[in-house]
């Protein structure tokens, strides 16, 4: 295996990790951008999506199970998100610290629930046969470099979901109301837009997408009760670096952070690459405190 293929392989891994980060961060970016809600239980939506995928495969078998799992993970976590919004988050609007604590509590409850139901050791999701192959690029300088099917699938999934979310926001009635509430919530309310319903829809969409991320994640790593924890910090970093409520910023930041940590790991250990990553983010925030795309955070200064 040559130097080039090693770098290319890590780069590719980085992009697939970035895809999962992107899916995880999308929901956070949406709900924080719109509702100023920091959902500490967002990581557990990944975990829940992973377990739902595992259950679907157990019920429907290896072939169809994963496809069903994607749908179940999205719908299941979206419904759970809706329930969480109605029972808890809606009651804590305008109290960010209380929301932070309450959702952290939800996160602990969900982790323990997963531990009680599935055990502390992870469950494995084996990729369905239609994803287990590799694409190899033999006969070129890239000899020996092959793309695992699952990682390619994750990248495609993230691209499709990002495209779908962007379309919803740009083209649908719901998207128009999301943009209106984002720009001026009281006025949208006074014009007859049911802002609570918009919040609910955005929150459920965000948790559903996180469930999809969990589903994708289950293809490359075992699903454990704490799997969400290892991704949520990166997801928050993506949201902060990307700029609040901006899809483009979230995409760019996810790619930067995913590829950065994957390539840094060629040269050094996982923990030292995290140190480097955080250092870079801290330095970056000194120069662009509002993130890559800062347009969306105007609302913050005005409130």
């Amino acid at each position: 295996m040559s130097e080039t293929t090693l770098v290319a392989g890590q780069l590719f891994n980085g992009i697939s990790v970035a895809s999962i980060l992107l899916l995880a961060a999308l929901g956070l970016a949406l709900s924080f951008g719109l509702m100023r809600v920091i959902n500490m239980a967002h990581g557990e939506m990944l975990m829940m999506g992973g377990y739902l995928t595992y259950l679907s495969i157990a019920v429907f078998g290896k072939g169809a199970g994963f496809a069903v799992g994607l749908v179940v993970a999205f719908v299941g976590t979206a419904l759970f998100g809706a329930l969480l919004e109605i029972t808890l988050i809606r009651r804590l609007y305008g109290r960010p610290l209380d929301t932070l604590l309450a959702t952290w509590g939800v996160s602990l409850i969900l982790q323990q629930a997963a531990r009680s139901i599935f055990g502390p050791i992870g469950v494995e999701v084996t990729a369905p046969p239609w994803l287990s192959g590799t694409l190899s690029l033999g006969g070129t300088v890239m000899t020996g470099f092959s793309i695992p099917g699952v990682r390619a699938f994750i990248i495609v999934l993230a691209a499709v979901v990002l495209g779908a979310v962007a379309l919803i926001i740009a083209r649908t009635r719901l998207g128009l109301l999301i943009r209106a509430v984002h720009e001026n919530r009281p006025i949208a309310d006074a014009l007859g837009a049911n802002t609570r319903l918009v919040d609910l829809a955005v929150f459920a969409l965000g948790t559903g997408v996180a469930g999809l991320a969990g589903s994708a994640l289950s293809l490359i790593a075992p699903v454990t009760p704490t799997v969400g924890q290892s991704y949520i910090v990166y997801a928050f970093l993506v949201v902060i670096v990307g700029g609040l409520g901006s899809l483009t910023g979230t995409l760019v930041a996810a790619l930067l952070i995913g590829v950065f940590s994957a390539t840094a790991q060629i040269a050094t250990s996982q923990s030292f690459s995290d140190v480097l990553l955080l250092l870079c983010v801290i330095i970056f925030m000194q120069f662009r405190p509002r993130g890559i795309v800062s347009q969306g955070s105007r609302a913050l200064e005005e409130t």
Binding site: L177, R179, A180, E183, I187, L191, G192, A193
Partner: peptide, 25 residues
């Protein structure tokens, strides 16, 4: 309601501003 300072959504087009206003239908 026509608010003080007009309360136009700056990033939405004129048509989109009107469309949000039609939410009360």
């Amino acid at each position: 309601y026509v608010p003080q300072g007009r309360g136009i959504f700056p990033q939405l087009t004129v048509e989109e501003n009107l469309s949000v206003g039609a939410s009360s239908l």
